[in-house]
Nucleic acid binder design. Structure first.
Length: 830
RNA sequence: GCCCGAGUGGCGGAAUGGCAGACGCAAAGGACUUAAAAUCCUUCGGAGGCAACUCCGUGCCGGUUCGAGUCCGGCCUCGGGCACCA
């Protein structure tokens, strides 16, 4: 078969038949298969995309053959930083370049031969889409889930612009190598933390990889602890020569039981109290320290690379129980964004505090001792135990003490039990051009006003100078930025920032089923039928951010009354990553991006698809190597040959070998052949079906290979082989769709084969007369015996004992115990 | 540093706590062919043995178990994520 010609033929035919078209009238039997859409970057569709999309399409076709009305859409996440950087470098407008890339990738995707419903295509940078992203923003704003606050950005001191984390290399700007500092700007946030609790507990019911759920749980990072108030002492006020009325530091701790061991208090360098309480003497060093800390990322700050550092503010606070005077320090290991941005330093029972106290000579007081008899006096001591040096709490076990100590404060208003989360609100403002404009107008009289829906979309203007020079690109576009207030009509200014591209991708799965809707983001009635997504396929790198944002958005829209389901993705699969040949990530800078086009041109897309599924463990991925692709091509040719042979047997009665002048003359042998072929066929059907459900494509193909091998072993081309061939074509169809479609026609079938039913195995065909079980003596295999399947433990044991080999092995030994694993093994313990 | 994974023949990879290495690649031998390619058949973790068979073997060290690639504890190496790459 000429694969390339054949593939072109069927792609056209499928388009004619609207094979990928989703029939909305049959939403009851819908199956929504979704692959993460791709970013239309400069190097187009690479092998990694193919690896995501081709096997997923195999799964979708399998589901279609199981009778589901499959919906499989495709689109592009087309706003983003790389397009803008490319534009800065080349002068080509991001819109031009992005649209060019999309057109090319669409063509490549069509070569893949996937069953996409192109009528549902979504392109996030298209006004017909981002209009509704803006609508979503306004809805969140009205619901109180979007708000503004000061937050740090990476600021390149030389380019005079905000740069992304990715562009910061070793604390310096990747472009100009100058120093990067953190600078506060007013930015928009989504209140994802309002949903922290639900995002956490809903994970339990999702059919997602356990590791992904664990990662999200840790990312949300719920921890139950206490907030405890330390008051700034009067002396501090005196030193500052300013009245500091009732200044207090609220610390968050999960170890209230160690309160008596507190020897100092630490504020994050960015803590608002720092400037107020720093004594004049310490001002210079505190300012210097704050500046140094602003240059470090959170990872560098909390990392264990260097020493713990910090400086004394000159201020003191009072221990809430002992009334001791404790110094207040600032240290970068305390993060402003977690807890209250302040911690109590308990060197004896925390490793970081211990390092810090040792370095700066702060007192270390042990307040928990081990409750075991063996004396462990090494510090820091992190384990459980009972309190000591803790006044009235001495002798209480530390878990009880946590509650008791906090409860003591609760009455006085000086502390309380508090649940905190590592999860932070989602920062969505970007000081960039190529993104969705934020639909907010600032009016001198009315404040921040969302743009009315009838005025959406707020179009991203074309003629903008987006070379970095210290300002958000849109703020330099006069005709964009200057507008009138939608409420009072007076002159006003638009928000000059654009939205994080994760906002665009946090709801695209809701747009697909109603992508052409021009009056709404989506029709709730349709969406409530079409979602949740039945199978979502994409890379594990999105475990925490994209997947969490999409879940948040779904819950927020539900609470606004637009959706009636709680979770967007019922079932999730991560494909592994296809690495470069050397085992490193495929990227332009590594110069190891593998383009699938050369392979589709040489072997055809079916062969490439088959190879990707057979050569890798789908969820593991691995380094690319083309050594196996030839084997996949050979296998497909082998399939074609046996199908040709089988077709010749169409009218040859099974067992009538002699008429044909070949094959065995013994009629019995033919019958046995038939049974063996039948067994192989149903064994394959059973396992391929199961493996496809599990996205275990490599083992599914292995079972098909075994079936093909069994067909070659079959004595002659007869009707039995012919019928086996017919089933094989259906079995293999999702894996090599173009090929199977053609073979089906050759076999007299009607196109499309994907409207046919996937084969179902017959359990009766899988009943074996004899099975082999292993006989172990002291857990070492000594021999194997054949027995009937399903024997009782006693029957298997006595069958084993009558075997000559077993007798030999057990001769002269006393059997103490016999362990039988049904249909697997017998183990004699002697 | 923190969170999450992974480590099995020369290679890609299989194995609900129960016969490690399915299936395939590469390699070797054979058949067919004038020859090559293609195809078909056979062998293929290591060591020993004529053989039956024996011993060793799933990154390292220890543990649980009649039995561990699989479970537990401690390491080592690699990969992903760490909130402005998407």
């Amino acid at each position: 078969m000429d694969y390339l010609k054949n593939e072109e033929k069927w792609r056209k035919e499928w388009e004619k038949q609207h094979l990928g078209h989703f029939d909305r009238s049959k939403a009851d039997s819908k199956y929504y298969v979704l692959e993460m859409f791709s970013y239309p970057s400069g190097f187009n569709l690479h092998m990694g995309h193919w690896y995501n999309y081709a096997p997923s399409d195999t799964f979708a076709r399998f589901k279609k053959m199981q009778g589901y009305n499959v919906f499989q859409p495709m689109g592009f996440d087309s706003f983003g930083l790389p397009a803008e950087n490319h534009a800065i470098k080349t002068g080509i407008h991001p819109k031009v370049n992005t649209n060019k890339n999309i057109a090319f990738m669409e063509k490549q995707l069509k070569t893949l031969g996937a069953m996409y419903d192109w009528e549902a295509e979504v392109i996030t940078s298209d006004p017909s889409y981002y209009r509704w992203t803006q609508w979503l923003f306004c809805e969140l704003y009205k619901k109180g889930l979007a708000y503004q606050k000061q937050a740090p950005v990476n600021w390149c001191t030389s380019c005079n612009t905000v740069i992304a984390n990715e562009q910061v290399v070793d604390g310096r700007c990747e472009r100009c190598k100058s120093e990067v500092v953190r600078k506060n700007l007013v930015q928009w946030f989504f209140k994802i933390t309002d949903y922290a609790e639900e995002l956490l507990w809903c994970l339990d019911v999702l059919d997602w990889p356990e590791k992904t759920k664990t990662m999200q749980r840790n990312w949300i990072g719920r921890s139950e602890g206490s907030e405890i108030v330390f008051e700034i002492t009067g002396e501090t006020r005196l030193k500052n020569k300013k009245p500091l009325e009732n200044e207090k530091i609220t610390v968050f701790t999960t170890r209230a039981d160690t309160l008596f061991g507190t020897s100092y208090v630490v504020l994050a360098p960015e803590h608002p109290l720092v400037d107020k309480i720093t004594s004049p003497v310490q001002k210079t060093v505190v300012e210097e320290y704050k500046y140094a800390a602003s240059k470090l990322s959170d990872i560098e700050r909390t990392g264990d690379k260097g020493d713990k550092t910090g400086v004394f503010t000159g201020a003191y606070c009072t221990h809430p129980l002992t009334k001791e005077k404790l110094p207040v320090w600032i240290a970068d290991y305390c993060l402003a964004l977690y807890g209250t941005g302040a911690v109590m330093g308990v060197p004896a029972h925390d490793t970081r505090d211990f390092d810090f106290a040792k370095k700066y000579g702060l007192p270390i007081v042990r307040v928990i001792k081990t409750d075991k008899n063996d004396v462990d006096d090494s510090l820091p001591f992190i384990g459980r135990g009972v309190l000591t040096n803790s006044g009235i709490y001495d002798g209480i076990d530390n878990e009880t003490a946590k509650k008791q100590i906090t409860a003591g404060f609760e009455k006085k208003g000086a502390g309380r039990l508090k649940t905190t989360y590592k999860l932070r609100d989602w920062s969505v403002s970007r000081q960039r051009y190529w993104g969705c404009p934020i639909p907010i107008v600032y009016c001198g009289h009315c404040g921040a006003v969302p743009v009315p829906y009838e005025q959406l979309p707020v179009l991203l203007p074309d003629g903008v100078n987006f070379t970095p020079d210290g300002k958000s690109p849109l703020s330099k576009c006069e005709e964009y930025i200057n507008t009138t207030c939608p409420v009072c009509g007076k002159a006003a200014k638009r928000d000059a920032d654009t939205l994080d591209t994760f906002v665009c991708s946090s709801w695209y799965f809701l747009r697909y089923p109603d992508a052409q809707n021009t009056s709404k983001a989506f029709n709730s009635e349709i969406i409530n039928k079409m979602l949740p997504v039945d199978k979502y396929v994409g890379g594990p790198e999105h475990a925490c951010m994209h997947l969490l944002y999409a879940r948040f958005m779904t819950k927020a829209l539900r609470d606004m009354g637009y959706l009636s389901f709680d979770e967007p993705f019922k079932s999730l699969i991560h494909q592994g990553m296809i690495l470069g040949e050397g085992g490193e990530k495929m990227s332009k800078s590594n110069n190891n991006v593998v383009n699938p086009d050369a392979f589709t041109k040489e072997y055809g897309s079916d062969v490439l698809r088959l190879f990707l599924m057979f050569g890798f463990s789908y969820i593991e991925g691995g380094p690319w190597s083309d050594t196996g692709i030839k084997a996949s091509a050979k296998f497909l040719e082998r399939v074609e040959r046996i199908l040709d042979t089988a077709l010749a047997g169409r009218n040859v009665k099974s067992g009538s070998a002699q008429e044909n002048g070949r094959g065995p003359t013994d009629g019995k042998k033919t019958e046995n052949d038939d049974n063996e072929l039948n067994y192989a066929l149903h064994y394959a059907i059973k396992n391929v079906t199961k493996d496809l459900e599990d996205f275990s494509f490599n083992t599914a193909i292995a079972r098909i290979m075994e079936l093909v091998g069994a067909m070659y072993k079959h004595s002659q081309p007869d009707n039995r082989l012919y019928r086996c061939g017919m089933t094989l074509i259906k079995l293999i169809a999702p894996f090599v769709p173009h090929f199977a479609e053609e073979m089906n026609v050759i076999y007299g079938g009607k196109s499309s084969i994907f409207n046919e039913k996937y084969p179902v195995f017959d359990p009766a065909a899988l009943i074996k007369q004899k099975i082999e079980i292993a006989v172990q003596v002291n857990s070492k295999i000594r021999c194997r015996i054949d027995v009937e399947p399903g024997l009782t433990d006693d029957a298997v044991t006595s069958a084993a004992l009558t075997d000559e080999n077993v007798k030999k092995v057990l001769a002269g030994l006393t059997v103490n115990k016999v362990i039988v694993v049904r249909d697997k093994l017998v183990n004699f313990i002697v």
